[in-house]
Amino acid sequence: MQYQVNLKKTEEGYAVWCPSLPGCASQGITKEEALDNIQDAIISYLEVAKELNTGIESCYVEVKLNHA
């Protein structure tokens, strides 16, 4: 599975986050380290989300936007 991640150069290295997973972020001194770290963060995020959603009913709703 692939997730889009955003990278930002900082004074300490790189900040990285996954826009589709709120709160899922990491960092690294190098770009490569940041990308490795966000992979671990995404895996952990998904494992916790699965645990939290066990036994919970979910469904999809359609939202129609009116462009006036």
Rank of each mutant, 00 (worst) to 15 (best):
Cys59Leu: 03
Tyr60Gln: 06
Ile38Phe: 11
Asn53Val: 00
Tyr45Asp: 01
Asn53Gly: 13
Gln39Trp: 01
Val63Thr: 10
Tyr14Leu: 07
Glu47Arg: 04
Ile56Met: 06
Thr30Asp: 14
Leu35Pro: 13
Lys50Ala: 15
Leu21Glu: 04
Thr10Asp: 14
Glu11Arg: 04
Pro19His: 03
Gln27Thr: 14
Ser20Trp: 01
Gln2Leu: 13
Tyr3Ser: 00
Leu46Ile: 05
Cys59His: 10
Ser26Asn: 03
Ser58Leu: 04
Tyr3Cys: 01
Ser44His: 02
Gly23Gln: 03
Tyr3Gln: 00
Glu51Lys: 12
Val16Met: 07
Val63Asp: 05
Ala49Phe: 13
Ile42Thr: 04
Ile42Asn: 05
Ser44Ile: 01
Gln4Thr: 08
Gln4Phe: 10
Ile29His: 15
Val48Gly: 07
Leu21His: 10
Val5Ala: 15
Tyr3Arg: 00
Leu46Ser: 03
Glu12Pro: 05
Ser26Ala: 11
Gly55Pro: 04
Gly28Val: 01
Lys50Ile: 04
Leu46Asn: 05
Leu65Met: 08
Tyr45Ser: 03
Leu7Trp: 02
Gly55Ser: 03
Glu51Thr: 05
Glu33Cys: 11
Cys24Ile: 03
Gln27Pro: 14
Cys59Lys: 04
Asn53Phe: 02
Ile43Lys: 07
Leu35Phe: 12
Glu57Asp: 13
Gly28Tyr: 07
Ile29Cys: 14
Cys59Phe: 15
Ser58Cys: 12
Asn37Asp: 07
Pro19Asp: 02
Val61Ile: 13
Glu47Tyr: 07
Thr30Met: 13
Glu33Ser: 10
Leu35Asp: 03
Pro22Leu: 13
Gln4Val: 04
Ile56Ser: 08
Val5Thr: 06
Gln2Ser: 10
Asp40Ser: 09
Glu62Lys: 06
Cys18Asp: 01
Trp17Met: 05
Asn37Val: 06
Tyr14Lys: 01
Leu7Glu: 00
Ser58Glu: 06
Glu12Tyr: 14
Leu65Glu: 12
Ala25Asn: 06
Val48Trp: 09
Gly55Cys: 02
Asp36His: 08
Glu33Phe: 10
Ile42Leu: 11
Ile56His: 08
Ser20Gly: 10
Leu65Phe: 14
Glu11Thr: 04
Glu33His: 04
Thr54Ser: 12
Tyr3Gly: 05
Val48Thr: 10
Glu51His: 06
Pro22Lys: 09
Glu33Gln: 14
Gln2Phe: 12
Cys24Trp: 02
Ile42Cys: 14
Ala34Pro: 11
Cys24Arg: 03
Glu11Ser: 14
Thr30Phe: 15
Glu57Arg: 03
Glu51Ala: 13
Gly28Arg: 00
Val16Ala: 11
